[in-house]
Design a protein around this nucleic acid. Sequence first.
DNA 1: GATGAATGAGAGTTCATTCAT
DNA 2: CATGAATGAACTCTCATTCAT
Lengths: 191, 191, 191, 191
Amino acid sequence: MSPKTKTQYKLIRQEKRALITDTALRVFAEEGYHASSVNRIAERAGISKGLIYNYFTSKEDLLKKIVFDIYNKIIEKYPLNTKETSGKHVEFFIDKTFEFVIEDIDRAKLLFSISSQTEVMEILNEKVIEKSLPFMNSITKYFQTLKHENPEAMMYYFFSVLDGVQLNLIYNSKFPSESVKEILKNQFIKS
Amino acid sequence: MSPKTKTQYKLIRQEKRALITDTALRVFAEEGYHASSVNRIAERAGISKGLIYNYFTSKEDLLKKIVFDIYNKIIEKYPLNTKETSGKHVEFFIDKTFEFVIEDIDRAKLLFSISSQTEVMEILNEKVIEKSLPFMNSITKYFQTLKHENPEAMMYYFFSVLDGVQLNLIYNSKFPSESVKEILKNQFIKS
Amino acid sequence: MSPKTKTQYKLIRQEKRALITDTALRVFAEEGYHASSVNRIAERAGISKGLIYNYFTSKEDLLKKIVFDIYNKIIEKYPLNTKETSGKHVEFFIDKTFEFVIEDIDRAKLLFSISSQTEVMEILNEKVIEKSLPFMNSITKYFQTLKHENPEAMMYYFFSVLDGVQLNLIYNSKFPSESVKEILKNQFIKS
Amino acid sequence: MSPKTKTQYKLIRQEKRALITDTALRVFAEEGYHASSVNRIAERAGISKGLIYNYFTSKEDLLKKIVFDIYNKIIEKYPLNTKETSGKHVEFFIDKTFEFVIEDIDRAKLLFSISSQTEVMEILNEKVIEKSLPFMNSITKYFQTLKHENPEAMMYYFFSVLDGVQLNLIYNSKFPSESVKEILKNQFIKS
DNA sequence: GATGAATGAGAGTTCATTCAT
DNA sequence: CATGAATGAACTCTCATTCAT
């Protein structure tokens, strides 16, 4: 006889929002953003098309919010401790990178496939760069302490290696992840 | 007003085909395959929509043939000389990889952006793997001669590093390509 | 916590109904019937969408009842006194017409904008014509007493002039209403 | 064997564009702009939905171009001769107004129904006002020569009367147009 | 070989309406 | 009496593809 309480509504909204983002994430990762249709996301989520627009203003908004959430999750994953510029930090970085891809291949896939769609990323890019700077500085310092000739170039090299490894973790089913992780650590961590 | 000879026709066809693939390549690279319209390609090429269908059965066919052409160009770029498993071969590989991306960023961009679209790649993948095997074997052997613990994993690592470097050459305008090339060579080429 | 009496309920219903019609009237007048959404009306009224359907069977029903109410208000405004066919009656008519528009520009706007939407008006038109007939007869008789050549045509002319003036009162912010009222009276009231 | 000539294409485009605007005009006039669907216009024109977008960028663009065309037609109808401020000019004005509505009731209907949709008109309004000013001045001068107390108010009154008469010509099937035209001329033309 | 008008399926989106609570 | 999550039909618009010429 009485309407649902505000708490009930809030709970429903949270769950449905999560259902939509999770489903969309999977569809986007599988087929790419542009090739995915809102219809298909709704079907897979077992809801109506219209409901998606009750939670997101547009398909693009849905994508942006998913990507944003992923970035936040990544940021959480790499808590920056600038005091620690030792090999431990780099090892931690390598481990977390593998962890992120292996635990959540869909999120990683989406991030990679989206990175080539400039339009979408432009808005996020500033935020991302801002957040990335401390990591870049920290790694650069690490290579300085190792007396590398060009620490900054080494840092760029290090991140590009991580990119390449992630790419193969995602798309190359034969990629020997554990062995490569060992190699990586040997290459970059000098005791 | 004299009727064209068969040779002339063939020449015209070849030129038109090239015009279409070149334009489409650029448009695909810039906006992504799904976001590009046939209309736009025709406009940019200065021809009519209909003409494209005179040379390709569909938009997807156009994409596949472009990607196929790119692979062929890459294959040509890396003439396999299995006798030479020395550091020279690896250096050659690194140089060619940089060359390919820098000389033809559009082709590289297209390849990367397309890689995440499973449907298109599935067909090509088998062909690619088949062609890649000799290179993979050659590089594996190289790491064997260097007495690496796990030469196959090293080979996978090597190719993933190249992937990561390419990715950054394409999308990261601040990437110090020359310095990184030096680092790469130092890392993988032991004299 | 005591149960409300039936009278109290009735009062609440009346107030809520009025709140809904008043809000809808304003929204319809501002944006037009088709461009207005039920959601927007609910928002502006500070109630839920569902509640509107507790009082009206549909958006169209809401519109019809509002229009109907307006007509009733107009009818009340012009109490017909058929004995008085003198200039006083016509002057009264002119005054009331100005009064109606100026006092309640939203109602007037809605009526005019709705008039061109055939579907809605068809149902009302019969009722309106029925109610209007006495006025038309009264005005026709007035022009008869003034010995006009074609009193019926004059009556139609008179009403069309009132229509035109109303239109300009609503949409033309530079319209000199007081001066035009004077002119109108001079034109139609002969002592 | 050869493509259509440019002239042929131009002819086709002209005819199709006219077919679309004519059909849309009728549909808009009958059902109002917002209540009309592009689908319905296409059906009535016997063409596909898509074709409409080959000629107009949007439904709103279609409306704007139709309204614009109407205004241009009206402007042509009233060639301004500012030297002639006599009764002849006013008579001419009255005649043309009747002519416009009677000859082309759909266009008149559309203009009236659209006038209440502010958004659409805003863009046109400036142009319209600019074009209307000479007419307003001309009519004001006419009432000056007639020694009217307030010539400007008379001018506004005159145009509002024309508006009201047009409204009734359009929507009131019983409106005695010829008789009212006579009355109008008697009211405003003093010899 | 070449054109571009035309199609139609399907895209993203909106919104009146329903209903469990 | 009141809520707002949920639906689905219908909307505007896009675009790969066809075809008469």
